[in-house]
Nucleic acid binder design. Structure first.
Lengths: 214, 214
DNA sequence: TAGATTGTTAATCGATTAACAATC
DNA sequence: TAGATTGTTAATCGATTAACAATC
């Protein structure tokens, strides 16, 4: 591929920069909803609480998307970011663990419009297996490796109890999963080619209480 | 207060360091559950995927907690970290928005053992007001400012729809909330003395798809 | 004692920002 | 044109790591 975006793909982009791209995308969508056609690094910066230099610098890792004196065409930059983040087509996602949290995630309406479809549910509880959540059948997690392989699923959300989290992650890796959104409060050990993002509300709260006064 | 921990409180600790303390605490709890009495920066580092130097350096911001040649007494370091993070007593938390996610959070069993008690629920939906979730009554969010003030609540979890997120945050701030765990996919604008932590599964997933191959 | 590990220093590494030429 | 804003460079800022004296 010969365009600027992909020409720069070979250089390593800092992970912290990649992590900000979804926030840029989110903000652009918002601006578009407000009827705006173009924006600037300054406007994005104000919305996000970043510096405008950071936004320009971040984007410069991937190409040139703006016009001097004018700024960025919102629709164009959105499309470019979606392309960079591999969001051009829908991703199928496996959700493992259909407890309260898994249930809420299975019904979460924002996944599909943002490019993610919960395509398979797994649980170990025989009472849940065979039931449906949001019209998706809950499968026996004993068959998780084959089922995920067969479906070609590359992304998983892990919402299982702590004590089976690492074991489940091992099986997801075995099944070819490349990205795990981990809700279990533990550091998963996975091969370097597998990405993990952790969501732990307790850790977030405990970070903030450092600054809190009673 | 005269101990080493608080003597160092005056110097500004980098926010990124504070954010790692809950992970240290989490790992120490795990080690204690495994029956260990002492640990080392190296052991913690291996569990967390950090460097041992980083762990020693991070802790050094707050005092001296280890013994050369021996390492750290787990119970002692746990207690110190809890003290540093203001986790010695239970924090009351207000949960705003009792949708699927709010419902799951209200029933989440890990808050209490980790020092957080969901003490009040709020929702704008008349059909939900007056009902109970996990035996906590859902209050009318019209009265949120007074109710939170009266209860002296300093921490809130925001699980409301995007379009009312900023407005709700404004009211939380007005009510004296110092920390907001924000599940709405937007950057909240709050005064500098109010801490916000964002949890957005979509942003996490989109960060990982950058590295994924179909 | 010998071995192990801390706490700290200094060096390294990486990220952010200020500034500005280019140019729309 | 005049004003605005980009993309990039270089400087600054901050975080991480290597190394080691101190010492348990």
């Amino acid at each position: 591929m010969a365009d600027a975006t992909n020409a720069k793909r070979n250089k390593v982009v800092p992970d912290i920069v990649v992590g900000r791209l979804p926030l840029y995308l989110r903000t652009l969508i918002r601006l578009e909803e407000e009827g705006k056609i173009v924006t600037s690094s300054q406007e994005l910066a104000t919305r996000l609480g970043f510096s405008s230099a950071q936004i320009r610098k971040d984007l410069s890792h991937f190409g040139e998307f703006g016009k001097q004196g004018t700024g960025y065409n919102i629709a164009y930059l959105m499309q470019q970011l979606k392309n960079i983040l591999n969001l051009d087509a829908m991703w199928d996602v496996a959700l493992v663990g259909v407890g309260d949290l898994g249930h809420a995630l299975a019904r979460y309406g924002r996944f599909v419009p943002k490019g993610f479809r919960i395509a398979a549910l797994f649980d170990a509880d025989p009472r849940k297996i065979g039931t449906r959540v949001n019209n998706i059948p809950v499968q026996n997690s004993e068959h998780i490796v084959d089922a995920i392989k067969q479906a070609g699923i590359k992304i998983a959300i892990l919402a299982v109890p702590l004590d089976v989290a690492q074991d489940t992650a091992d099986r997801l890796v075995e099944a070819g999963v490349q990205a795990i959104l981990n809700y279990a409060p533990t550091t998963l050990i996975v091969p370097p080619n597998v990405k993990v993002q952790n969501i732990d509300p307790i850790a977030h709260l405990q970070k903030m209480t450092y600054y809190c006064e009673r």
